Structures are given as C-alpha cells and as structure tokens.
Amino acid sequence: MQRSTRIAILTFDGFNELDSFIALGLLNRLKPLGFAAELCGPGGHVTSMNGVSVQLQRPLEWANEAEVVLFGSGLYTRAIAENGALLDRLQLDPVKQLVGAQCSGTLLLARLGLLGDRPACTDLTTKPWVVEAGVRVLDEPFHAQGPVATAGGCLASQYLATWVMLLKAGEAAAREALHYVAPVGEKQDYAERLIARVRPFVD
C-alpha cells in the first residue's frame, strides 16, 4: 500500500496566488504516489491579493499533522507574524516534518523559531523584516538545510515543490512531474534546471 504524504500549503487572506497554486498543482501531480497537497489556513475561505476567493481544504491545525508544511506569502504576512494567538495554533516539528516557506512566509518561520541559525531566502520587500528578526538573508532563489527550506521570488515556489518531490518521491518521479508541466520544446531543460538547483540541498 502506498504511504501517503500529506502536504499543508498554509494560505492566509491576501495570499499570493503563485505561491499557493503553483505548489499545489505541482505536488498533486504525484497523487498516484500518495501525495496529497491541500490549502490549509484559519477560517473557511481566504481571498487572494488579487481578489480571488477560495475555500480552504483543511483547518490551520491540520498542518501540525502533515508530513510537509509550506508557507506561502501575502499582503498581510507581517501582521500575521505579530499575531501570537494565531501562530500559537501551529506546533510544527522539523524533526518529523519538512517545512518550507516562500517570500514573506519566511518571516513566519522566523517568528515560529523554525529557522534557528539557518540563513534564508525571501523576497526583496520582506528582506528588511526578516533581517530585523535576526536572520541572514541570502541573495538566492532557494536554500535548504536539513528539513527546512526557503525560497525567494514568486516563481521560486517551483523550487520548494521540487525539493519536496525529490525528498519524498525521488528524482525519477520529480523529473516526470516537472516534465509534464514544463513548456513544450523546453521540457528536458526545464526539469533539469529545477532539479540541478535543488539537488545539492538534497544530496
């Protein structure tokens, strides 16, 4: 029987569609291997930064049970980072879970104490806040150390998804999923570029 990999994509009001939906779409390409990526957050619905309202598939606390937790970014992440009552509902454990963050989601990792002394990636707007939180910010699209990864730039969400696929399903499965979604005529180069960026952090 195929072991399931539950993936919580934390999504809050004002979320960036590229962060949440790219990861959701890429990771669910591996449903036949037991992957189950779902949007997770407080309340029943959230509205994106561009006014798209979606129904959340899981409550916020479900992230505490998932094998993988990915934090997206959004317009209100700084306020969320200061909301202790909300963040206290998250009891994440990098010893048992893979934890990743995208852009301003990196600030939430810092507030939750999940980065430790790791350097991190984030977007240019969020960088001063992450530095203020005591984190060394890298000028890179993706970085991982052990079970914690961060990415900077909206389209860097594909690196987070690739990281999860490599660790949880292996390179052959990751390559197949990336090949499927890549632009026609660029499929092999596209998949290889993503894997080449992430592989050093997996090996």
Rank of each mutant, 00 (worst) to 15 (best):
M165S: 10
M165Y: 04
L166S: 12
L166R: 04
L167D: 13
L167C: 15
K168E: 13
K168C: 11
A169S: 13
A169R: 05
G170M: 09
G170Y: 05
E171A: 11
E171C: 04
E171H: 02
E171F: 02
A172G: 09
A172R: 15
A173M: 09
A173I: 05
A173N: 08
A173T: 00
A173K: 07
A174I: 10
A174E: 10
A174Y: 06
A174N: 06
E176C: 08
A177P: 00
A177G: 08
A177H: 03
A177R: 01
L178Q: 06
L178W: 03
L178K: 04
L178S: 01
L178A: 08
L178C: 05
L178I: 04
Y180A: 14
V181C: 11
V181T: 11
V181H: 00
A182H: 02
A182V: 08
P183V: 04
P183A: 01
P183S: 02
V184P: 03
V184S: 15
V184K: 14
G185S: 06
G185N: 07
G185V: 10
E186I: 00
E186D: 13
E186K: 08
K187P: 00
K187G: 07
Q188M: 13
Q188I: 12
D189K: 14
Y190L: 02
A191G: 06
A191T: 01
A191E: 05
E192A: 13
E192W: 07
E192M: 01
L194D: 07
L194Q: 03
L194S: 03
L194H: 02
I195V: 13
I195K: 05
I195E: 10
A196T: 15
A196R: 15
R197Q: 15
R197C: 14
R197G: 07
R197D: 10
R197P: 05
V198E: 02
V198R: 06
R199Y: 03
R199C: 06
R199E: 14
R199N: 11
P200H: 09
P200Q: 12
P200F: 12
